[in-house]
Every structure is written in C-alpha cells, then in structure tokens.
Design a binder for these strands. Structure first.
Lengths: 132, 132
DNA sequence: CTGAATCCCTGCCGATACTG
DNA sequence: CAGTATCGGCAGGGATTCAG
C-alpha cells in the first residue's frame, strides 16, 4: 500500500504537516509520506490484533499465541519483527531459564490507540446505517 | 489485511464501540470488525492519494489521471470502484457529449479527513525523531 | 472519455519443519 | 520458549488492449 494524503479543503495556515507541507502534494506513492509510514506500520493481517493485545499490557510470545490461537508462530514472529522495526513495540529479553522475551508497546506504539479508536468509529458508523 | 482492535488499557465505561464491545475481543481477523472495515476502505496502493484529490473537490476520471500521472487507467478504475463500494465516494454520470463522470466524496468519505490527518501526524512524529 | 478484460509478476500469508 | 527456513497458494498491482 502506498499513500500521500491529507490536505484539508479549507485553509489551515500551518497545521503540523498538512496542505502546506510539500509532501501533501506528491503525485505518486512515496514510502516517506507520513500517512504511508503509519499505514505500513498497521499493514498485515493480525497486526492490529497484536497491537490490541499489547495495548492491554506487555505480553510474552506464548501469551500472544494463547490470546490469538489461530495465529501461527511464523506470522506472529513476522508481525513482532515488523512492529519492532516500525518502532511500535519493544523486545525485552529476560535472561535465565526458561528463556523469555517480553513485548511491550513503545510510547510511539501507545500513540496508535487514538488512531485505532478513530478507525473503529469510522467503521462502526459505516455499518450501523447499513448502506451496503 | 484483517483487524480487530482498539481497547484502551484504562477503563472507559461506555465509549462508542470499545473495550466493552464484544467485537473488541475477537481472537482472529474478522471482516466485520469496524477497524478492518476502515482499513479495508483505505487499502490499496494509490487509494489515499485518490481520496486526497477528492478532499479538494470533485473530480473527473481524467482530472484524477492528470493529478496522478503515474496511476494507470486500470488501477484508477479499480480504486474508484473499490471506494464507491466502500461508501467513500459517489459516481455521478453527466449525460451528453463527451460522456463524463464526476466523482465526489460522500459524507462518510469526508469523515476520513481527520483519520488521514491522524495517520499523517503519527507518521510525521515517527520520522522526525529519526529513530530508524 | 470512461472504463472492463486479460496476462504476468510480485509479495503476502499460512503450514510444516527445524535450531538456539 | 522463541524464533528461523522453506515452500506453495493466492490475491494485488501494473501494462496493454479492447469496448460503450
């Protein structure tokens, strides 16, 4: 997926990174676009479910597998690696035996909560009127 | 992609569709999840760029092609069909010659603006500290 | 002008099996 | 326990071509 978005019709002289921002005027998908960065972080099946689990507190690999039984090892591993690289979560290896790793959201990851909330609200509005 | 998200750590007794909502507790991807519905609407390369153009006003097929030169007919057609089905935009055929079709956002589509803004802001925060 | 049909190629997802 | 390696299937995206 790729994006380069945002740009309110009416003028907000200098909102953070908006219509004034040159990046809001790109004519083709650009991985450096902030919108794309965020959507890239959220992309992938299971991704938001993993984030939801971590919003409730830190978790181990096994706890995540238990919370999402239909999620395979490989995909969970992929998601965790992806989210770690995206700066959404943080790995913490616990020394000793049995070897353990805890996963917790970074501050940046916690800032996804209102976004997920907004996505939820839009989708809920969409289905309640039942226009489709 | 699939999601079932949202769920603030701290208790909000009855926010719209949140931790209290049973759908916030699903253990596997569900297309009926509001979060998934929204992400599905935004999914696809070029999708948010098309929405951005329409946020600035209604457009014709050709105007969109001109605004996004690297976007092929087929993909633009796909995106418009997808967004129309998602309830984001509305087709309006103009009778006469040359045959024309105008595309404009639905009210639901306009409600994506703050979401795209939020996505932008998160992504901008992400890259300014330059942690990657 | 506005699309739909086709073809190919790539990347994601899932299952299975294997290491530290 | 916490992953990685590999393989196959399938859907998405782009170019080209054709039609209303």
């Amino acid at each position: 997926m790729t994006h380069q978005t945002v740009g309110y019709p009416r003028g907000h002289p200098s909102r953070p990174g908006l219509p004034d921002d040159p990046r809001a005027h790109v004519t083709e998908p650009d991985p450096a676009c902030p919108v794309e960065i965020t959507l890239a972080a959220l992309r992938g099946r299971w991704t938001t479910l993993v984030i939801r689990e971590l919003l409730r507190g830190d978790r181990s690999f096994t706890e995540l597998r238990h919370a999402l039984p239909a999620l395979s090892d490989k995909v969970l591993s992929d998601r965790l690696a992806h989210l770690a690289e995206a700066g959404v979560l943080h790995r913490h290896r616990v020394p000793g035996w049995p070897p353990g790793t805890r996963y917790s959201l970074t501050p940046q990851g916690h800032r996804l909560a209102p976004i997920l909330q907004a996505l939820w609200d839009w989708g809920a509005q969409h289905q309640s009127p039942g226009h489709e």
